[in-house]
């Protein structure tokens, strides 16, 4: 399909607030994003012309923010509402090979919803991972360097090489990625699966590519510096940092230190990659 035919559902509810910049990122590349309120998918309080069906879109985006205030646990309320209303639509969407992405609060929602990491299923009944409160105990808004770990599996980063470094900033209070600890053995096995299946997409690193680097390079204390993961199909992708914030060079943290160079920011490739994949596949 042509890029302008790619419909992107930018899903929002009260408290999602990175939707404009997420919308802009798709729009600038020629796709057709649309703001869709959760109630429009649920068909609640809508008048003629406002109801939307998920199946009409090729990409579903969970923008960052503080959906419903994040008052219980980040993303928990949004996920609960999705599960109770359009769970089957989401499963079908994923099984059709369509793309779902989430940044920051979007990633938290996806984990709460059970579509990441989704071991041995499309959508797990209970969350299989957690994005826990940062080790610092604080909200952290700071630059982060990400090392790309995937070798082409994830459709959202297919245009990045393994080992590429990207400056993509973080801003969250709950971003420490952890898998459940039933026993040391089981926990290790789950991390191994993520690594072995190529599902770790980004890890926090220092500017030299060291992915064992600690705070502030790893802003939240994530195990193995994990910043973003994908599902088994490579189509569902969540990350804590915000690629939509560095679509252009002049929002990178130190762009003015080298005033020459391409105008493309480090986050744009994420949007380019997924659009490239969708236009080829559908």
């Amino acid at each position: 399909m042509n890029i302008d035919e790619v419909k992107v559902c930018i899903l929002r509810m009260e408290g999602t607030n990175c939707e404009q910049e997420t919308f802009d990122a798709f729009s600038r590349l020629g796709a057709s994003p649309e703001f869709v309120h959760l109630k429009q998918l649920e068909g609640r309080d809508t008048i003629v012309g406002e109801k939307r069906n998920l199946e009409d879109y090729q990409i579903l985006m969970f923008p960052g923010g503080f959906s419903a205030g994040d008052y219980i646990r980040a993303g928990a309320i949004f996920a609960a509402r999705l599960k109770s209303s359009i769970k089957d639509d989401i499963i079908k969407f994923i099984e059709d090979g369509k793309a779902i992405g989430g940044f920051c609060n979007g990633f938290q929602i996806m984990v709460e919803l059970g579509i990441l990491p989704a071991f041995d299923c499309t959508l797990s009944e209970h969350p299989q991972a957690v994005l826990h409160a940062n080790d610092s105990g604080k909200f952290e808004c700071r630059p982060t360097v990400l090392r790309h770990e995937s070798s082409g599996k994830c459709i959202w980063t297919s245009q990045l090489e393994k080992g590429d470094l990207r400056y993509i900033p973080s801003a969250h209070a709950e971003g420490k990625f952890m898998l459940p600890h039933e026993s040391q053995e089981k926990e290790d096995e789950l991390y191994h699966r993520l690594f072995d299946e190529g599902r770790i997409v980004f890890r926090y690193s220092d500017p030299n590519g060291d992915v064992d680097a600690s705070y502030p390079y790893n802003p939240n204390g994530s195990r193995f510096n994990i910043a973003g993961i994908t599902n088994e199909m490579g189509t569902v992708f969540g990350m804590m940092p915000h690629p939509e914030r560095v679509f252009f060079r002049n929002t990178q943290p130190d762009w003015y230190r080298r005033k020459i160079g391409p105008e493309e920011g480090d986050g744009r490739i994420v949007f380019r990659s997924v659009l490239d994949h969708i236009t080829k596949k559908f």
Binding site: C18, E140, Y167, A171, Y217, H242, D254
Partner: peptide, 23 residues
């Protein structure tokens, strides 16, 4: 103080509260 404030949401903050080497 300012690391606890999201100073980049809306993705239009060209000069932020901190400048220079990112770290």
């Amino acid at each position: 103080v300012f690391r606890m404030y999201d100073h980049e949401v809306r993705a239009r903050t060209i000069i932020k509260p901190a400048v220079g080497q990112p770290f």
